[in-house]
Simulated assay, not measured.
Amino acid sequence: MPWPLLDRWLAAAPEPARTDWLKDHHYAHRGLHGGDVVENSPGAFAAAIAAGMGVECDVQKSRDGRAIVFHDADLDRLTAEAGPLAARSVGELTRIALRGSGERIPTLHDLLAQTRGAVPLLIEIKSHRDRPVSSLCAAVRRNLEGYGGPYAVMSFDPRVVRWFARQAPAIPRGLVVTEQGRKGWRGRAGRHFALWQSCANFLACDIRDLPSRFAAAQRARGLPVLTWTVDSAELLDRAKNHADAPIVEGEGVA
């Protein structure tokens, strides 16, 4: 299979001016969290801003179609509530306290008001393979309209990335990739097919997979490669050698 030729044809590399800024930062994974500071919380984002780091966050869709900053599909791990986040309205969700914290679940609108362009944002859009993605993608785009700072969207789901390629092509868009459990020929083909479907401008690769032939090939032809989750000094060294920017937490921050 002529992978390089098909990659260039079906997922052209972006103009460097659109994406080179992604390489200039370390990104705090779900904000700078730990101890009493909860992931994806205003406090975690404030700590990242104070440290001059970029912010990586996760976005889910509320029952009424709003973009909510939260990693899990269910509320159980991070709050005293239970059940799927998607079953609650934005009003219900923003009244829920994050576990062990006086802070509440923020919306993407809240996060944008907090950062105000001070640091770059990576917005990972969470999806469900059996559900449409357009409503959440449109909600994210609405929130970003008129926002003055640098930002990019990304997702494991090629449909999400493709939506932005078609509906908001000016927004930098990335494909999140892991090769775990997918190391054979089928996995390799699947990564290329996902790239072609998504028309991604950059990759966010699992640090456990680096060095990776797939990531190196895309990086060589002009797609920035970010890597997650870099949580140790050893992995930070690996990221420096095989990626353009790390998404860090814990000991990886230093």
Rank of each mutant, 00 (worst) to 15 (best):
V69M: 09
E179H: 13
W196F: 11
P172N: 02
P14E: 10
L112I: 07
A165F: 11
P246V: 08
S41N: 07
L75T: 09
T94K: 15
S198G: 12
F193G: 00
E249Y: 12
Y147N: 06
D58P: 10
S134K: 08
L203C: 09
S62M: 04
I49Y: 01
A245H: 08
C199S: 13
H128M: 13
R88I: 04
F202C: 04
Y151K: 09
G181H: 05
L195H: 05
V37Q: 08
R188S: 07
V38L: 05
R99V: 02
C199H: 15
E92D: 13
R99I: 00
A51L: 10
H26D: 14
A11S: 14
G102T: 11
L195G: 01
K240M: 14
L195T: 11
A86H: 13
E179W: 05
A152W: 01
T19V: 14
A152N: 03
E145R: 15
F70Q: 06
A113E: 12
G184P: 05
H109Y: 00
T227N: 01
S101T: 09
P224V: 11
L223D: 09
D237R: 15
R66N: 09
I207H: 08
R77A: 14
L10T: 01
G187Y: 03
G43H: 10
W3P: 13
L112T: 07
Q180G: 11
R208L: 12
G190W: 01
E39H: 10
V69W: 06
G149W: 04
P14Q: 06
T178N: 06
P120H: 02
P211D: 07
L75W: 04
L108A: 03
R221T: 13
A82G: 11
S41E: 13
G252K: 01
I123K: 03
R191P: 00
A82P: 00
A67R: 10
M53D: 01
